[in-house]
Simulated assay, not measured.
Amino acid sequence: MNLTISGHHLEVTPALREYVLTKLDRVTRHFDQVVDINVLLSVEKLKEKERRQKAEVTLHVKGKDIFVENSHEDLYAAIDQLMDKLDRQVCRHKDRINDHHHVAPKRMDATTS
């Protein structure tokens, strides 16, 4: 698994990096077939008083790319909400992969007899 954590108008401190890694453990625990993860943390300065912290994740799994973004006044809160969204999308993707919506041939013969 390739992991890239980068910052835009922001220095990614070791504390931020560690926080993102601990939050990503929850996602990789649910779904271990992750190929690539790109995390982008940024600060948007809209006005002097109003600063928006933005976190984005692009998760590349086999056959699909999952993109999630979230903005908040606090960067740690933005990361928390982002990981909640990402966790829901990963679980939904995993359910779609595992649920094939068909009956096995051996069960089909038993029901028609």
Rank of each mutant, 00 (worst) to 15 (best):
D87N: 07
D74N: 08
E69P: 02
P14G: 01
R17H: 14
K94L: 02
M1E: 04
E44Y: 07
E48K: 15
V103C: 03
A78W: 07
V43E: 09
D65F: 12
D74L: 01
F67D: 11
E56Q: 00
E73D: 10
K23G: 04
I37K: 07
D99L: 11
T111R: 11
L82A: 04
V39P: 03
L21G: 04
D36Y: 10
H101D: 14
P105K: 04
L10Y: 05
Q81V: 07
Q53G: 08
V68G: 02
A77R: 12
R51Q: 13
H93F: 05
D84G: 01
T28H: 09
L86N: 04
K106W: 05
C91D: 13
E44W: 03
T58L: 14
T13D: 05
N98H: 10
D95F: 09
E73W: 01
R29A: 14
T111P: 00
D87K: 01
E18R: 12
E50G: 01
I79V: 08
R17S: 13
A78C: 00
A110Y: 01
E50V: 07
Y76E: 08
S6I: 02
L24E: 05
T28G: 05
I5Q: 03
E50W: 02
A55N: 09
M1Y: 06
L3K: 10
M1P: 09
I79Y: 03
K62Y: 07
D84Y: 02
M83I: 15
D109C: 01
H100I: 10
L82I: 00
L86R: 00
F31Y: 14
T28D: 12
N70F: 08
L86E: 05
I97S: 07
